[in-house]
Amino acid sequence: MNKFWPIFFMFWPILAIVSFVIAPSMNWWFPGPAMSPLGQQIDNLFYLILVIVAVTFVGTHVAMGYALWRGVDNKGQKAWFSHGSHNLEILWSIAPAGVLMFISLYQLDVWMEFRVKSHFPEGTTPVAEVTARQFEWRIRYPAPGKKLMTTPQADDLYSVNDLHVPYGRPVSIRLRSMDVQHAFFIPELRVKQDAVPGTVIPVWFEASKPGEYDLACAELCGWGHYKMRGRILAENETGFERYMETLQAEQNFDGVTQPEHSGAQIAEYGIEDSQ
């Protein structure tokens, strides 16, 4: 019975480790594997830090558990009194500082690649301007074959909450906000960037596989924050081009001229005119 407290206090760290170990198989882990090259690197960094923290955590808890366990039987023994150790103090200040230094230097490349425009991967193409607004994502694409300009153009194409991008190459968006602060968050691509009123922030990402990815707002922006759900649809080049052409035909529709491409987009809107 006198081992109750050591067991009690050791139970919790063990529970913590067990839940960490089973977490991935229980789906308590990441929102799926990273679906972008940079996301993979971010995950690797995460795992590196996790390993460092786990080693420290296990080490200190084993030591503490051992001390507790032993201490129960040390009834007669007199406590050893310490005035502190200068060497030890130095050691446990420098060692963590060194570890932190290592992490901050080691991650610098990834951080620069993600945040600093001059370090964006070569060939990153701006595909759209995304303007966050209470409570939706308004999207402006350049017309097919044109470049995205900083100001709206007469032939720009518009959409909302549904961002189409080509997959397999880096693309960027111009992120803006119309009202308050929002955050552009694509969990599966490990992209998260605040949208700040008054500034335009370039954000790049690359979807390594075609498919649908969730877009969420990650900054509490008002009562409708939870509604700011969007979709990123990563398609192959022809699919993406076809989408842009459909959008163009849709947006120039005059009720008479048959749109050249009566594709998915028009049908999706349920527009009578397209038949």
Partner: peptide
């Protein structure tokens, strides 16, 4: 149907595109 899908831009009527 179209209004619900696209919303009313410039007002608080949101798009229910998804």
């Amino acid at each position: 149907f179209r209004i619900i899908k696209l919303g009313v831009p410039g007002t608080y009527m949101p798009s229910f595109m998804l």
